[in-house]
Amino acid sequence: MRKVVGGSGASDGQAQVAIAEMLRRPVPGLRRLTVVSVRGGAGKTTMAALLATELSWYRADRVLAVDADAELGSLPLRLGVQAERSLFDLVERRPRSFEEAAPYLTRAGERLWVLSATRGGRIAEQFTLDAFETALGTVGGHFAAAVVDCGAGILTDLHQGILAGTHGLVLVTPGTVDGALSARGALEWFRNNGRRELLQRTVVATVTHAPQASADLERAEQMLSQWQLPVVHVPYDRHLAVGGAFDAGKLAGDTGTAVGRIAYEVFARSIGAPGVGG
């Protein structure tokens, strides 16, 4: 894995083998991987879509991408689908088998499914923690992993409820000093407000949104590295910057490497295995 973490001495092929071995590991039950950001525009939804796609590529069982953004999230759009039914329909029907549940999900790949918070891109109802937990509880037994895309922020009752049940957390922040300060504030809040256990499950993703990386990127990553958590830089990617649905085959090589590292680290933490970053 040294190649994946930016070192030398290992080939790309060896790195891919290490990622594959980790992401294919059996799980004792549904692993909830939550993607959050302190504020909007950090790249959270894109990261959730990339992470769900990466997991579904390697696993032989099903992966669920969950749109938990109460303010009209764009996760289905990023994954190239439009959901005509939402988790509210699922809660209302309470299907007892995957065959009954499938019509309330949207397929985004061979093993990737989407559970949307909206119907046809329109807000359905008020999004609550109870609705989220009921929907995920209804279908969770049919999936190995659920990648949950939260709305921006970490302090609402909804966010705190979702974070309480997560097995792995990706905290997404712009790759700037300002972004690092926001991420540091979130980590300090976890530590000081009864969420210290989240720190052991967290991977920080710093995202560059412009073709020229900020001169502050190195300083930002130094600030975050003091927490002794994996800090992975996701470089600017012209294909992702276009918006809308992305094609994983068109990602730049450095982007793919970063996503692989993030997937490796957060999945390792979700199953209690040591990651490269600690």
Rank of each mutant, 00 (worst) to 15 (best):
G153N: 15
S214Q: 10
G253H: 07
G275S: 13
R93A: 02
A215S: 13
E110Q: 05
R62M: 06
T208N: 00
H209Q: 14
H142Q: 06
S56C: 09
E84M: 03
L51V: 04
G275P: 11
F246N: 07
Y104H: 01
R122Q: 12
A124H: 11
G153E: 15
A205Y: 02
P211S: 06
V5M: 08
D149P: 14
L169W: 13
S37T: 10
I262P: 05
A215R: 12
V147D: 02
L251R: 02
G278N: 11
T176L: 11
R269W: 01
L79V: 10
G109A: 02
F143C: 03
G272C: 02
T53Y: 02
A42K: 06
L75S: 08
V242N: 07
A258L: 05
D61P: 09
A20Q: 00
Q222P: 04
F246S: 08
R195K: 05
G256Y: 02
V242M: 12
A145L: 04
L199Q: 07
G13Y: 06
L171G: 11
E54S: 06
L163R: 02
L198P: 10
D216L: 11
F98A: 05
A180L: 13
I262Y: 01
A131R: 02
D237L: 06
R184H: 10
A210I: 09
H233A: 02
T173S: 15
A152K: 14
Q222T: 11
V242A: 15
F127Y: 13
F127W: 09
A183H: 06
L163E: 08
L112K: 01
A144Y: 01
L23M: 08
R196H: 01
S116M: 10
V36I: 15
G243M: 07
W113H: 08
P28S: 00
V172F: 05
V204M: 13
L163H: 06
V38I: 14
S74W: 09
A263H: 04
P28W: 01
E265P: 05
A60C: 03
T128V: 11
H142D: 15
G121D: 13
V5K: 07
H209D: 13
R39T: 15
D247N: 11
F98G: 05
E133S: 03
W113A: 04
G253K: 09
T34K: 08
A60P: 00
V203W: 08
K44N: 13
L155C: 12
S37P: 14
T45G: 15
G43Q: 12
V5R: 07
G194A: 02
A83R: 08
P95I: 00
A258W: 05
E99W: 01
F88Q: 02
A131T: 10
Y236C: 08
D216G: 14
A10W: 03
V232H: 07
A152V: 15
G43E: 13
G272N: 00
V234T: 03
E100S: 01
S86R: 01
E92W: 03
G194S: 01
L64G: 04
D247H: 06
V170P: 09
A131D: 13
I19R: 00
H239M: 11
G40F: 15
R32V: 12
G80K: 00
G137F: 04
L77H: 14
N192A: 13
I123A: 14
L55P: 07
G168C: 14
W113G: 05
D89Y: 00
S86T: 06
